[in-house]
Design a protein around this nucleic acid. Structure first.
Lengths: 368, 368
DNA sequence: CGCAATTCCGTAAACGTTTACGAGACTAGG
DNA sequence: CCTAGTCTCGTAAACGTTTACGGAATTGCG
């Protein structure tokens, strides 16, 4: 353990020894310096009412002077709560590169909320070696965090069952099939799918392909449902051959384009669920001499640094990652008893809207 | 504090009550279940030698059965060390968007190392509101972490002085002017600047501009020094007017291009220190009807998802973010006494090499 | 002045671990 | 049989906080 006081160059006065030579650290040292009891010091620092305002000032000044901050371990042990929130993020190779800016953007917002309440953020990496649920179980049992943010929810997500039965406050970024009474925020996949299909149908398209993730992450199902519903609304029969499953990377997009080109009756439009797919898709189409917006219509999902500089520009949907992070943080706190009065929003379940950004990639019109 | 045992649905047997009805948690509960003392349980779990192998097995099985994991706060308090490493990352608006994939990539490698040693990762956000050094001081005083990774080192970096005097193991991603005897790893900015200039000079360029960050982050100075040295090596006089300072974003790149276009004697080549600058630079040049590689030579810095899909393709330098993260993690551990024998590398100070990726953006040749 | 109410502060017990110490039960060697 | 040594394990003291409790000092009121 590092020495509590870093600036210990002031000599004998602040050395903090008892008359018998014993070296004292932490709050005991501070109390000794001030010649009051540690109980009073603690109460003074924690803003408890039963302490004289004058002594409180003395304590605060002394604490500031010697850079005293309460040791977190002692604090956590006594109060039974760490001042930390866990953020579980997957870093699998499936989504690597794609999730990059997404997570860091959300992170930023989450941090903004937490730092306001002096909460620390612990990153829980979802390594590929261990089962995520077991890892989570360990963290919960260790008492590492007071709350959790999980993301990339799956259709049936054991993590949700675990956390629910452990009664640990948490919020999920993404809906799940096993949706109990827990807060979540999810992107408006149905809305995006619907608007994308609407837009394409309005341009005369009838054969609209869709690129979805190949794993069982829940957003794929939701997106696909929205896609099907939109088709049905327009009286277009659903063709399973037009659903292409691939990794959510640019390679995945490349593969999607590849499979689309191989179809006997090639679709005239394609909707992607990951913007990164668009990059690889463009590349493959380019190799085939096809240009998005001229020979085929393409609509991506989220606007991102990668997608923003594609040529021709990609029609996609925009959102503020930071705002999403802020909402996540605040909604989690709202579900924690200790912050219930600061964020009296109750149980938050929110669909996060996205705004259409029209690009050139879906300019392609089909004669009806 | 969440209940230690999550699966408490097995009824009376595992309820963990003392004869007088008191509810027991943690290691005490486990000891009670096994009818041995908590000291033995602790020793068994921690692999201490003086425990019978048979009882150790019993303990391990029981612990696994009831999902017991030692509470971290109690553990930290007793041993004086948390099992956590802090990663300080800046999230200022200056570098937002740019640092995104960089940090997450490095993160990935760091995590890979830490998870191997069951170390947790705490993210220390460098918010714009508080002084980073003070924030760090608080974290150190709280005893939050056993070690630290700091990044984006400045020319004179108070954080380094603080951590050195606090004797907390740390590693810096980036050199600093105030380089004490601490480990660091930094990218090979001199090498990149030299190779970039060499390459351009070989194509006949004599007026080579350079885009550097406008803040006092140290890498800007190092890069510039390399640039100057390379010029001198080729007998080209240094022209301060060709040094353009801007934000390390695409807007910054846009501004750089703008300023270059306004110069009376326009340079024929430009070297950038942030790949994201290239994006904005391309845009401004495009507006002016200039095409990189045809009308002006451009060399970016790091290959990134954004830069990879620029057209014409950007000549830049490639590196593995994950490997850098791994090196950072291992080198930090090497500087911690507890891991000295696992990573016997001593004090690491490493220049991280980058590999040239030739693109089209510097195809432009000047007649000599 | 007497008594109750209030204000302030010290005492000590937790919180869940790890670990130094010592004690008991063996074994071995004489 | 005695003693020294070796295995085990239990006991209890830390680690640095917070907080319930009670006591002393002060104030307010009749």
């Amino acid at each position: 353990m590092p020495p509590i006081c870093v600036h210990d160059s002031e000599g004998e006065l602040l050395r903090g020894e008892f008359p018998d030579g014993e070296i004292v650290k932490g709050i005991r040292r501070l109390a000794q310096e001030l010649e009051i009891s540690i109980g009073t010091v603690s109460r003074a620092l924690n803003g408890k009412p039963d302490v004289n305002e004058k002594t409180r000032q003395r304590v605060l000044e002394a604490a500031a002077a010697m850079g005293y901050v309460a040791n977190q371990a002692g604090r956590s042990l006594r109060q039974g709560s760490t001042n930390a929130i866990g953020f579980m993020m997957e870093s699998g190779s499936d989504t690597a590169g794609n999730s990059d800016n997404f997570f860091l953007g959300v992170f930023d917002g989450v941090q903004a909320v937490f730092s306001r309440h002096h909460l620390d953020l612990v990153v829980l990496p979802c390594s590929t070696e261990e089962d995520p649920t077991q890892y989570l179980q360990r963290m919960v049992a260790r008492g590492m965090v007071d709350g959790l943010i999980i993301s990339a929810t799956h259709r049936r997500d054991e993590r949700i069952e675990l956390l629910s039965s452990a009664r640990l406050p948490f919020i999920a970024l993404g809906r799940s099939g096993t949706s109990g009474p827990h807060p979540w925020i999810d992107l408006d996949f149905e809305g995006v799918a619907n608007r994308a299909v609407d837009r394409l149908v309005a341009k005369g398209h009838r054969r609209i392909a869709v690129g979805v993730p190949s794993n069982d992450i829940n957003l794929g199902f939701i997106f696909l449902d929205g896609y099907k519903a939109a088709l049905e609304r327009h009286g277009i029969p659903f063709d399973p051959a037009l659903v292409i499953r691939a990794k959510s990377t640019d390679q995945g997009g490349y593969q999607i384009a590849h499979e689309l080109l191989a179809l006997p009756d090639r679709p005239t439009a394609v909707v992607l669920i990951y913007e990164l797919m668009a990059v690889g898709l463009y590349r493959r189409f380019n190799e085939a001499g096809l240009r998005p917006g001229r020979d085929i219509a393409v609509i991506g999902f989220r606007e991102s640094p990668q997608s923003r500089f594609l040529s021709p520009t990609l029609t996609c949907f925009r959102m503020s990652l930071r705002d999403l992070g802020i909402a996540l943080g605040e909604s989690l706190l709202a579900s924690m008893p200790a912050y219930a009065e600061v964020y009296p929003q109750g149980l938050v379940r929110r669909i996060w809207p996205l705004e259409l950004v029209a690009g050139e990639s879906d300019d392609f019109t089909v004669d009806v």
